[in-house]
C-alpha cells in the first residue's frame, strides 16, 4: 500500500522536479517581469476570478435544482452539466465558437449592429473558462447540499421564516465550506484552462493570451520563458490549493 502511495506521489512530484531542473534561475526575474508574462498573468487572474464568480452565480442554483428537486430528465441535466469536465476542452471551444461566433443565429445580428463579439475578446476568455469550470462548482455544492441535514431548514420554516430567509440564514452558512471549495476548484481549473480558450477566444497578447497560452507558444521558441511562466502557474495554484485545503475543505 505504502509503496503504491509512494509511486503515486512520485508521479505527481517528478514532473515538478523536471520543471525545477529546467528553470533558468539566473534570468528568472527578467523573464517574470517581461511584458508578455505580466500581461498574461493579469489576464489569467482576471479571467479565472470572473469565471469563478460566474460559476458561483450560475452553479449554485443548478446545484440546488439537482440536489433538491425531482423531475424527469434530471439525470440528463446532470450529465450535460458535467460534460465540459470530460470533453476535450478543444471540442468545447469549437462548440462555443459554433454557438457564440458571429456566424451564429444570435452572434451575427449582435455583431452587425454593435460590433460586439465574444470570440477574440476578454469576455470570450471568461465565457470559455466558465464553461469548463462550472461543473466543478455544481458538483461540489450539490454534494454539500446533499450532506446537509434538512431538519434545520424545516425547523426555520416552521418558525415562520420565508424560503429566501431560510436559504440565506440556514442553508448558505451550512454549505459554506462546499461553496468555498467549489469556488477554489472552479478558479484553479479556470487558471489552467487552455484548449477551450485558444479555440474560442484566440490568442492575442494583452487581450486573450492567458498564462497557459503563453506557456504553449513560448515552449516552441523560448524554453526558459515557458518554464518560468509554468513555475508561476504551479506556485499560484499550489499555494491556493494548500492554504484552502488546510482551513476550509470539507474533507478532513
Amino acid at each position: 500500500m505504502l509503496v503504491l502511495a509512494g509511486l503515486g506521489t512520485a508521479l505527481v512530484v517528478l514532473p515538478l522536479v523536471g520543471l525545477l531542473t529546467r528553470t533558468p534561475w539566473r534570468d528568472l526575474a527578467n523573464l517574470l517581469t517581461s511584458r508578455i508574462v505580466v500581461d498574461a498573468l493579469r489576464l489569467s487572474l482576471v479571467a479565472s476570478t470572473g469565471a469563478a464568480a460566474l460559476s458561483l452565480v450560475l452553479g449554485v442554483p443548478l446545484a440546488w435544482v439537482l440536489a433538491r428537486s425531482e423531475f424527469r430528465g434530471k439525470a440528463l441535466l446532470r450529465g450535460l452539466v458535467i460534460l465540459p469536465m470530460v470533453l476535450p476542452p478543444v471540442v468545447g471551444g469549437a462548440a462555443l465558437l459554433f454557438a457564440f461566433g458571429r456566424r451564429w443565429l444570435i452572434g451575427e445580428p449582435v455583431y452587425e449592429a454593435t460590433g460586439f463579439l465574444l470570440p477574440f475578446s476578454m469576455w470570450g476568455v471568461i465565457l470559455a473558462t466558465t464553461y469548463i469550470s462550472l461543473p466543478f462548482m455544481v458538483l461540489t455544492v450539490e454534494a454539500g447540499l446533499r450532506n446537509l441535514d434538512e431538519r434545520y431548514e424545516a425547523a426555520a420554516a416552521t418558525l415562520g421564516a420565508s424560503r429566501w430567509r431560510v436559504f440565506r440564514r440556514i442553508t448558505l452558512p451550512l454549505i459554506g465550506s462546499s461553496l468555498l471549495a467549489g469556488l477554489v476548484l472552479a478558479w484553479a481549473r479556470a487558471l489552467g484552462e487552455f484548449g477551450a480558450t485558444i479555440t474560442f477566444a484566440g490568442n492575442l497578447a494583452g487581450r486573450t493570451q492567458t498564462m497557459p497560452l503563453a506557456v504553449f507558444l513560448a515552449l516552441e521558441q523560448d524554453r526558459g520563458a515557458a518554464v518560468a511562466i509554468s513555475l508561476v502557474l504551479v506556485a499560484v495554484s499550489l499555494t491556493v490549493l494548500v492554504l484552502l485545503r488546510e482551513r476550509w475543505w470539507p474533507v478532513r
Binding site: 458571429r102 456566424r103 484566440g202 490568442n203 492575442l204 486573450t208 507558444l217
Partner: peptide, 17 residues
C-alpha cells in the same frame, strides 16, 4: 488573434470567424 498553427487559422477563416 495569433493562431498556434496554420491549420487552426485556416479553420477560423473557413468558419467565417
Amino acid at each position: 488573434t495569433n493562431e498556434p498553427n496554420a491549420r487552426a487559422l485556416v479553420t477560423k477563416l473557413e468558419e467565417g470567424d
